[in-house]
Simulated scan of single mutants.
Amino acid sequence: MTASDSRASQPVGSSSYVTFSLADETYAIDVLQVQEVLKLTEIAPVPGVPDYILGIINLRGDVVTVIDARRRLSLPVREPDEASRIVIIDVDNQNIGILVDSVAEVVQIPAASIDPAPAVGNDQTSRFILGVTSSDDGLTILIDLNKLLSDEEWASLREL
């Protein structure tokens, strides 16, 4: 099955999302931006960067910046474990790694089931939320990767 075949079989008005866990909550990002999912590997720290930037990894000869999704979303910090993964995403034709607690699955989410982001948390973190959807398994928070990685501080570090 090719990518176009899988898109053709999706219900009209739905999109595919990769779901992952952070602090016992389920989050999702657009599958079209996900390049691959890696087991935790050694991350080389970079001095003088914001605390949510863990450092860099070598991905088949390419240097990829890795951010801690928990810190970026102002969630409690914890040490990575065996379930932790680095999700490699493509934002503006650049690969970025995002450390998450675990990766679950790819799901179809109908556009009609996505509610606007609620006015919770602070403006700093709520701006990263694209919307929320609910299912029998609970709430899923959709993350807007372009906003997550768009502030001036981050933009100046994309060249690491």
Rank of each mutant, 00 (worst) to 15 (best):
I89T: 15
D101S: 01
I143W: 00
I53E: 11
Q108V: 05
V91W: 03
V132W: 03
S134N: 14
T65E: 10
I114H: 02
V49H: 09
I89A: 14
D101I: 00
I43G: 05
Q124W: 10
S74T: 07
E79L: 06
D144T: 07
Q33V: 00
R72P: 12
T65L: 14
V120F: 11
L73R: 01
S84K: 02
R70L: 07
T133K: 05
L148D: 04
A83Q: 14
P116G: 10
G61S: 12
D68P: 09
P45E: 06
I29P: 05
D115M: 14
Y27K: 03
A111R: 06
P76G: 08
I88H: 01
L130Q: 14
L139F: 09
R60P: 12
L157Q: 14
T19K: 07
A83Y: 01
A155T: 15
S126Q: 12
T125Y: 05
I43W: 07
I98A: 10
A44L: 14
I143G: 00
N58K: 15
N58M: 10
V64D: 11
P116L: 10
S156Q: 13
V107A: 08
L38H: 07
I57P: 12
V66A: 02
V100S: 04
E82M: 09
L99W: 02
V63C: 13
I109Y: 04
D90K: 06
A119I: 15
A23E: 12
E36N: 07
V66E: 00
L59G: 04
I129W: 05
S84V: 05
A117M: 10
I86R: 00
E79Y: 05
G131M: 06
A69K: 02
L38C: 07
E42C: 03
V132S: 07
V87T: 13
R70T: 01
L130G: 04
N146K: 15
V100Q: 02
R78S: 09
D151M: 07
A44T: 15
E152N: 12
Y17L: 08
S9G: 07
N93R: 13
L73N: 07
N95I: 02
D81F: 01
S156A: 15
S135H: 04
T26Y: 00
V106Y: 00
T133M: 05
V49K: 10
F20A: 00
T26F: 00
E36G: 01
K39A: 12
I86W: 03
V34N: 09
S135C: 02
I56H: 06
L148E: 06
P116W: 09
L157F: 12
D115N: 14
Q124L: 12
G138P: 08
A83G: 06
D24M: 09
R127F: 06
V12E: 12
D81T: 10
V107P: 01
D90G: 04
L148K: 06
A112T: 14
I67S: 10
S135G: 10
V12D: 14
